[in-house]
Simulated assay, not measured.
Amino acid sequence: MTGPSVVVLDYGSGNVRSAVRALERVGAEVELTADPGAVADADGLVVPGVGAFAHVMQALQAVGAPRLIERRLAGGRAVLGICVGHQVMFSSGVEHGTEVEGLDQWSGLVERLDAPVVPHMGWAEVEPARDSVLFDGVAQERFYFVHSYAARTAPEYVRTTWATHGETRFVAAVENGPLSATQFHHEKSGDAGAQLLSNWLGTL
Rank of each mutant, 00 (worst) to 15 (best):
H86Y: 10
V47R: 10
V133T: 12
V84D: 05
E125G: 14
Q105V: 02
R67W: 08
G137L: 02
P128C: 04
W123K: 02
S132Q: 07
E125K: 15
L113N: 02
I82T: 00
G37E: 15
R77L: 13
E125N: 14
V100G: 01
G49S: 05
F53N: 00
L134S: 01
M89C: 09
A34P: 08
G81P: 10
L45A: 04
V84M: 13
P128M: 03
G76W: 12
Y144G: 01
E125F: 12
S92G: 14
Q58C: 10
S91G: 13
G37L: 13
A74I: 03
A59Y: 06
G122D: 03
F145Q: 02
P119A: 08
F53R: 02
A52W: 07
F135Y: 10
A62W: 10
A59D: 12
G137C: 03
S92P: 13
W106C: 04
W106T: 01
V94N: 06
R77N: 05
A52S: 13
V138A: 00
E95C: 02
P66M: 09
V79K: 10
L103G: 02
D136I: 02
V47T: 03
Q105S: 05
H55Q: 09
G76M: 09
V79F: 13
F145S: 01
V56R: 04
Y144M: 05
G44V: 14
P36F: 05
A151K: 03
S91A: 15
Y149A: 01
P36M: 06
Q140C: 00
R142Q: 10
D131V: 07
V146D: 01
A54I: 03
G76H: 11
G76Q: 10
V110I: 07
D35H: 06
A150Y: 06
I69K: 05
L60N: 06
V118L: 13
E141Y: 00
D114A: 13
F143V: 00
D35Y: 05
P48N: 06
I82F: 03
G122Q: 04
E127Y: 09
A52V: 04
I69T: 02
W106V: 01
D35C: 05
F53G: 00
D114E: 15
R112H: 13
G81H: 07
I82S: 02
V84E: 05
Q61W: 05
W123L: 03
A154V: 08
F143H: 00
V46W: 10
G85A: 03
A59Q: 15
R72N: 04
H147S: 01
A38L: 15
F135E: 00
D43I: 09
E99V: 11
V100R: 12
W106G: 01
S92Y: 13
H55R: 13
V117N: 11
M89Q: 12
A65M: 05
D131I: 07
E101M: 12
P116K: 11
E111D: 14
Q87W: 09
V94Y: 08
Y149D: 02
A154K: 08
G93S: 11
G75P: 08
V100Y: 09
A115F: 06
L80F: 14
Q58K: 15
L103F: 06
V39F: 10
A78M: 14
V133Q: 12
V39E: 06
G102Q: 07
V47H: 08
A38C: 10
V110R: 09
L73A: 07
S92F: 14
D35N: 12
H147F: 02
V84S: 04
M57Q: 09
V39M: 08
R72M: 06
G64H: 06
V47F: 11
A115W: 06
W106K: 06
